[in-house]
């Protein structure tokens, strides 16, 4: 139990807030690394998911990817890409081995949930809506941007949420192969039997993951089209009761 009381002392120690091993630096490393990984994964996964969802081609690929993505342990992915990262470093002399390895693993792990949720979100769009859009003379691109995407957005964001939480966890494991981020405190804590450091690091990682989850759930709720969420359906009803039946544009 002393470890938990000691954690306060650890957080209060100004030495832990300064320099390359200080909390601000480690937090920034963690967040930047995670953000870059999600960004790159999004660039790859989103167009693929959209294409599969819009055309229906390659659905088998999306489903298989989902299954594989769920089955593969993240620590194993990290370790398997590690030699690749060593090779990149040896050939080019560029980049930090741990950074490249961790980033690569994070990107690989973030792609499947984004692809499959984008695809699933697009598939879940009511065909009547698409039909109605076509009836209004919309072209493929317009149907995609004005009907399919807005309706599918919450499901797509759910995929990003899964990916982001996964990425924050993998960034933590990156410290095991020598990477930065908040995971360093855990690795240092275990190596030095310094339980205050260990628990402090673990608490920060846990809070960051929970904050990530909450942020994306909030985003997801915000993204639900008002016509679907019931939020403004109620508003519409109020309007209707006042005798005005014109429905505002969504």
């Amino acid at each position: 139990m002393e470890a938990f009381i000691g954690v306060f002392a650890w957080f209060a120690d100004p030495a832990n807030w300064q320099g390359p091993n200080g909390i601000p630096t480690r937090l920034l490393e963690h967040v930047v690394m995670s953000g870059v990984a999600i960004g790159i994964a999004l660039l790859v996964a989103f167009p693929v998911g959209l294409y599969i969802g819009h055309t229906g081609r390659g659905a088998f690929l999306a489903v298989s990817l989902a299954n594989i993505g769920r089955a593969v342990p993240s620590y194993a992915v990290l370790v398997i890409v590690f030699p690749l990262s060593i090779a990149v470093n040896r050939e080019t002399g560029l980049f930090d081995i741990a950074f490249v390895g961790t980033l690569l693993a994070m990107i690989l792990l973030a792609i499947p949930p984004i692809v499959t949720n984008t695809f699933a979100g697009m598939r879940g769009v009511d065909p009547d809506l698409v039909e109605a859009g076509r009836g209004m003379g919309m072209r493929g691109g317009q149907i995609l941007s004005r009907i399919e995407l807005p309706v599918a957005l919450p499901v797509i964001l759910a995929g990003m949420r899964t990916a982001a939480v996964q990425v924050v966890a993998t960034a933590t494991l990156g410290a095991v192969i020598g990477g930065g981020g908040l995971g360093r405190y855990i690795v240092q804590g275990i190596a030095r039997f310094d339980y205050q450091r260990l628990v402090a690091g673990a608490l920060m990682v846990a809070l960051l993951a929970i904050a990530t989850e909450l942020f994306f759930s909030w985003l997801q709720r915000r993204a639900v089209s008002p016509g679907l969420s019931g939020r403004s359906v109620r508003a519409y009803e109020n309007v209707a009761q006042l005798g005005r039946v014109d429905v505002p544009a969504v």
Binding site: M1, T172, L173, I190, A202, V205
Partner: peptide, 18 residues
């Protein structure tokens, strides 16, 4: 759900002092 969100290394680490 909160438990599920915590990265595994962190949860293991929090339990170690106990």
């Amino acid at each position: 759900g909160i438990l599920y969100t915590i990265p595994s290394l962190a949860l293991f680490a929090i339990l170690v002092p106990i």
